[in-house]
Amino acid sequence: MKRIGLPSLSFALVMLYLFLPVAATVLYSLATEWNSTVLPEGLTLKWFAELYGDPRFLQAFGRSFVLSFLTTVVAVVIIVPAVFSIVVYAPRMEKLVQLFVMLTYAVPGVIMAVGLIRTYSGNGIPMIVITAGAYLVGLLPYLYQGTRNSLLALHARSLMEAAELLGASRWQAFVRIIVPNIMSGIFVSALLSFSILFGEFVLINILVGGRYETLQLYLYNKLSASGHVASAITVTYFVLMAIITSLIVRFTRRSFARKEVS
């Protein structure tokens, strides 16, 4: 008796719309020839073999990995302790931090690029360093939210009071008690940060361009060359994102589960 309602129909269409491009790209990366027929004429792994044998791809992948990884680590090292001391010791400064978070979130890459070029281009600092600096700020919303949630869930303020009453110094308490306890939450935010940077194109394209070819730039350059290889790149990228997402889900669950026990 249950007829298909508007919500279910809409849900199915949205999912179909979201999946079709993914499915088509996967199929295209495995197709031998696909120029005139509706379905590919045969299946092959040769595009992936070609891609993984291309040193330019490996270098681009390596550059993306190094850039995203190092920037994420530096961002965690700068942002997490700062958010900690602001949340615990200077809560009145939080309004200011939230203003910056809003600002970062509201200013798209293309606007940031204009300001960064005006400020830093042509004075000797390599633009890749400037790009990495802009990435640090770009990660602020995600790391701020992640750190803040972890600290609040931990009742960091009372923990610090207790530790100090027992004679620990602030740094000791932070390193020995707070850090281990917020680690899994920070790890989730760091994974998210890494995946965001891995997919970044706007800043690296406008500020650096071909001088530091990341995976996204490599994909852009391959678009006109070979559709099959380009889809192999896209599939590789998407698989990596899927792995990171599943790690995020697993670690989020784990940290939730632990909190419920404690």
């Binding site: 079709l20 491009p21 993914v22 088509a24 790209t25 295209y28 997919g199 194109f201 706007v202 996204q216 994909l219 852009y220 678009l223 559709g227 380009a230 889809s231 896209t234 990228y237 998407f238």
Partner: peptide, 11 residues
């Protein structure tokens, strides 16, 4: 971004 544009080119 780029991967999305490419997927639509395939479609």
């Amino acid at each position: 971004g780029i991967p999305l544009a490419f997927a639509f080119i395939v479609l």
